[in-house]
Design a protein around this nucleic acid. Structure first.
Lengths: 231, 231, 231, 231
DNA sequence: AATATCATAATACGTGATATG
DNA sequence: CATATCACGTATTATGATATT
């Protein structure tokens, strides 16, 4: 094959033919009509592949087969062949597009339900020692903007100081406090905006029995507990 | 729910994403913003593949990454994202088509010298594929100068379009159409000047069966069949 | 039509065929009997891959080959073929399950020695995935001896099944359920003896979000929450 | 890792864990509670992979994470873990099955249309020379079982001899002959069962101008032409 | 101590060559 | 003269190791 036909080959390959198909088509264009073995000889395609290659070319609309024995093959006019190619591609792409458009529409309906709201990152923190716990709580309360709720048994004081309460009242924050009578646990439950603090006091001043607290940051969970406190 | 996301996955895959990319994208659409490990957890993509998948998604323009340690990833808003996606895909397909068209134009220039005027086809040829067949038929009709006759059963439409008919009327070509009632074969018989086209439709337009046609070029035979159609 | 076969292809792929196998099978279902090259032409499978694909299909029992030159291939009748296929798949899945169950049994024997009686869990743990969470909850309920309390919004069902409730009633366990109306959080709060479970549902049961739960083991805290639920 | 735990690893891998996950789980079973780095040290998993491996194990319901810094991990009881595993698999398989069953039902509706009838192999044969053509025709007529139709112009004799006609009458074969008056073509058109023979006589006895015939075997095409002859 | 990247094996698919009757 | 098989490159997915801040 000359350099010229090599060039042509690559053009046809860019149009979706493989090397064998391109060479077979070029051969038939030059030759007009040829048998399978002539195509093989002239194109360098292994003889044993010529039939299926030509058959594939026929399906793609580049050649027609001439019945007889041996079967012969003839190239379709390049302008018909290339028009076929374009037409087939166009049809395929359009079908694909329409199918996709339908599916995308359906998909959007599904997705619109999930839209923007990511669940915020949910963190659980454990704190030890009354000092750091109280510091943490007061920091939260200072930054608080929406709501505060507290539950504590009657034998344990609130963690909210009078100063805290006044300050929150001033800022227009809703505050709810529930005191559970006739209980003897050493736990305060606090909801501050989207945080829950569960503050468990050590049993006494005995060594090794620190105060400890669990802090959970979660809008959902705090909403539930807040509602529960308010009942 | 599960089926919905399954469905979405396949839609996205048809838009050019692979399975991992599709899942990562869905995850981010639902989540809004997420780190690599969250994406891995939520999507089931192996952690060690998340970064390259997300980076690929980014280079494809479906996701933006927020630098930092850890990196954060964010998908575009689903409403516009999917529409953009579709638009991008449509554009891609169109570009593909245009590139094809350009290549076809280039190819035409080179191939034109293989087309020495009106090509003489062998006296019997076989064509395959509805597009090739229709193109071939319309080319014949364009070149037609004397007569056209068609026979088709009532369950199969004519291959002659209204445009064809008008054009032929204008050129003063005699046109005869015979519709055979109460037949259920998938064959059109066409006589165009000295050619006979026997067009047999397959069952399906994709997998499993194809259209095929036999073209016979013979004045004698076409004369006989034309007379038979006219009876 | 095209879309139908597309659909069929994906169904067959889920039944364990790859794309080529699916297309070859569909082609044979439509065609009845065909040679390798016909299958290639009709299905679009490259000719050089048809034989191994059909042979794979044969070994999977979807196709029979008729020896000879050329070989012929035949699919089973579609009615029974697809049903058989489904049956085979079902069987495969069931075998998989049974194999899994056997392996689980074996694993249990080995693993049992790592389970020194009732395992003590840390005071706070996090669980992920609805199945794990539900299993964990039901285990707690089975071991429960004193009390169960649940809070859930009206839009979310209880995690306690009717069976659970009956069983607890039988054992004389006190049960309290609080439903919070007009709330839309996805959280269940459960107190089982000295454990608190906070169960937060994700948005979807597949890609994009997951269920997670926090379990707190503490007599004090559970006492407080139990009292709060009962108010 | 001892040979014993190696063995256990492979059991867990058969249950769907990868090597890292299996080793991490075993380590946690032995150890009870451990930090990421402890797991790495004891299991041989690269430290940099421990977090994602444990996170994956958590999603699969084999471990729970204990919040804190550093985060700790605890193995779930093997019986819960394995029950989770089974449950998750069972659920997945069942969903898969149900989805498939629906799709198979739909697919069957589509396929039932295509059912058995393959298009018979369509052949086109060209014959040369009056002797072989006449031999071929008479062979066909002898084997004929259903129908015969012929069209010929008045200037050309029928190819059916009186003997042929008598014989066919005896066999109960329907015979239709159309003579086209005032035509001067040298062509006989013959439909014999599912074959079409187009017999074109050479113009004279001049050398190089053989009789030739085209034979097309096709039920569809012969049906159409037969109906056309009968009109 | 975490987060971010690489490397390798199995399979599927497309495509250029060979072997067998 | 056809039909039947091989061989290899690339992409996708799963999974075992390293590198960077």
């Amino acid at each position: 094959m000359s350099r010229n036909t090599e060039n042509l080959t690559s053009v046809l390959m860019r149009l979706g033919l493989n090397r064998y198909e391109a060479r077979a088509y070029i051969t038939l264009l030059i030759r007009g009509v040829a048998t399978a073995s002539e195509v093989s000889d002239l194109s360098g395609i292994p003889y044993t592949r010529v039939y299926d290659v030509l058959s594939s070319l026929e399906s793609k609309g580049f050649v027609v087969s001439v019945p007889g024995r041996p079967m012969k093959f003839q190239a379709l006019d390049p302008d018909i062949a290339l028009k076929n190619l374009l037409e087939i591609h166009r049809e395929k792409l359009m079908n694909e597009l329409h199918a996709l458009e339908e599916n995308v529409t359906k998909a959007m309906e599904v997705l619109s339900r999930f839209k923007p709201g990511a669940r915020e990152y949910e963190s659980i923190i454990r704190l030890r020692g009354s000092v750091s716990i109280r510091n943490f709580i007061h920091q939260l309360i200072r930054k608080c903007a929406i709501r505060v709720a507290e539950v504590h048994p009657s034998n344990i004081p609130s963690v909210l100081s009078d100063d805290d309460l006044r300050e929150m009242k001033r800022k227009g924050i809703s505050v709810a406090v529930r005191v559970l009578e006739s209980m003897s646990v050493n736990v305060n439950l606090l909801v501050v905006d989207h945080s829950i603090i569960i503050y468990e006091r050590g049993k006494s001043d005995s060594i090794g029995d620190y105060d400890s607290a669990i802090v959970i940051n979660s809008k959902q969970i705090s909403d539930l507990l807040y509602a529960l406190v308010l009942h």
